[in-house]
Design a protein around this nucleic acid. Sequence first.
DNA 1: AGTCGTAAGTTACTAAAAGTAACATGTATG
DNA 2: CATACATGTTACTTTTAGTAACTTACGACT
Lengths: 114, 114
Amino acid sequence: MEIEPIKECSQTILAIHDVMDLFKGKWKMSIIACLCYKKMRYSELLREVKGISGRMLSKELKELEMNELITRNVLNTQPVAVEYEITEYGATLKNLTKTIAKWGLNHRRRIIGK
Amino acid sequence: MEIEPIKECSQTILAIHDVMDLFKGKWKMSIIACLCYKKMRYSELLREVKGISGRMLSKELKELEMNELITRNVLNTQPVAVEYEITEYGATLKNLTKTIAKWGLNHRRRIIGK
DNA sequence: AGTCGTAAGTTACTAAAAGTAACATGTATG
DNA sequence: CATACATGTTACTTTTAGTAACTTACGACT
């Protein structure tokens, strides 16, 4: 008799795997959280997402845009400014980022407390 | 005048970054979700976490153990069985895994629906 | 006019992480 | 004795992340 995975669990694992794959790398979730807060320009994101490099930021932004989680708007100002904004769909992640941040804050306290 | 990052946002970003760093790689969150469901043996995890290799599984398990999110118990059966179990602290991630899974399920529907 | 600074990236290169396939060791089963 | 299963490890390759320097265009300062 062949052993089968647990269905109830498999569904969940699959869903989690999808999410982890979509947000792979350490930066994407932070970028999303930033843009959930307000729309920002490239240079603002470089400042807010501490430690990220230009190369990584533009790579991550491209991927997020491809997944329709953010939009890139070139403003016709002189000189051009580029604004990144969360999409309606991207905004559905707000609750998720909050949950992560909440656990993270608690974890940080726990680690520091040691 | 120097431009400063937004404090409210920075705290959140920092916390999220901590979490993403702790769970980097695509497997850890899935493993946690599995073990939140029930304690499992190495071979069970290999089956449940579809696509993971032995090398990756043991690496990830070691890291999760180091972070006190899971425990490794060698049972004195013949032949030895190894059981991985979520810790009390690890179990605080249950809500997070649920939130991720929920979004992931919805996302999967959206992608397939296209 | 020349230099510096800012914005929004890109390029070339290096380092780290993930993935693959085969091997090891002990036990149990036909 | 040959085969299979459990629990990994080792050696090797591929992919991803990270770093530092460069680019292009404009604006401000001297």
